[in-house]
Amino acid sequence: MSMKLKRRKYSLIYASRQAVPFKKDRPLQLMLMVYIIVFAVLALNPVDFRQWWYLNSISLLVVAAAAAFYKTSRLTNLSYAGIMLFLILHTLGAHYTYALCPVGEWMKGALGFSRNNYDRLVCLAFGFLISAPVMEILYHRFRLRYIEACLISVFIIVAICALNSLAEMLWAAISSSQQLFILSQAQGDIWDSQRDTAMGLLGACFNMGNGIFIKIRKNQKIHMVRVSK
């Protein structure tokens, strides 16, 4: 297949994906319904109501942004599934302020951790799951080369993790119970921010590296620019 035909094929695939209206997209409707139900259930009696809304404010902004840009910058359902899965993991952590999450307590006992590492798990999931939609936006909308989109996605994930650490520091600074907040988030780990960022980096590198490896195995050119409509 010639380069011209390949670009035409990619353009048609992208255009057809963009044309799907939300009312006909059953998988996406199901994903949204599942998230709404999980959010509503976990909003009941959280461990710390203020932290619950603080931690979930970003989740609500992500859902609002996805809805606002659905018509102009629709992602694949696989990317939406990754976003939904991360939001569910984050919402569960927010319900228990992360430090008290039962999943982390089980990991602590089963794997011999000295702290509840559910926050590390979510950071790893963030890098792995969110790097895909970020790469997709860069690849389709900004028409970057595939390998460039993958590399920049990793940088963006690391930047978001760092900004999240700064936001936590700011919240701790203005919180009425700074010591309690620091203990609940960092759990006494002075390298908490760096390790969270490292887990996000690891997840993003694994996902993007895997994508590059698969394309190379299929003899697809990772430097080729995808042509959008």
Rank of each mutant, 00 (worst) to 15 (best):
R7H: 14
R7G: 06
R8V: 11
R8Q: 15
S11P: 08
R17V: 02
V20N: 11
F22N: 10
Q29E: 07
M33Q: 13
V34W: 11
I37L: 04
V38L: 02
F39V: 03
V41R: 01
L42H: 02
L42C: 01
L42M: 05
A43R: 01
V47D: 09
V47T: 14
F49K: 14
W52R: 06
L55K: 15
L55H: 13
V63T: 06
A64Y: 10
A68C: 11
F69E: 07
T72F: 12
L78V: 12
Y80S: 05
A81I: 11
A81V: 08
M84Y: 08
F86S: 02
L89W: 09
A94V: 04
H95R: 04
T97H: 05
Y98V: 09
C101W: 00
C101H: 12
M107W: 06
R115W: 10
N116Q: 07
N117H: 14
R120N: 05
L129K: 04
I130Q: 07
F142H: 11
F142G: 02
R143S: 09
R143P: 04
I156K: 05
V158C: 02
A162C: 13
A162S: 14
L163T: 14
N164L: 05
N164P: 01
S165Y: 10
S165V: 13
A167D: 08
W171M: 15
W171Q: 15
A173P: 01
S176I: 08
S177E: 14
S193Y: 10
M208G: 01
M208P: 06
K218M: 10
K221D: 13
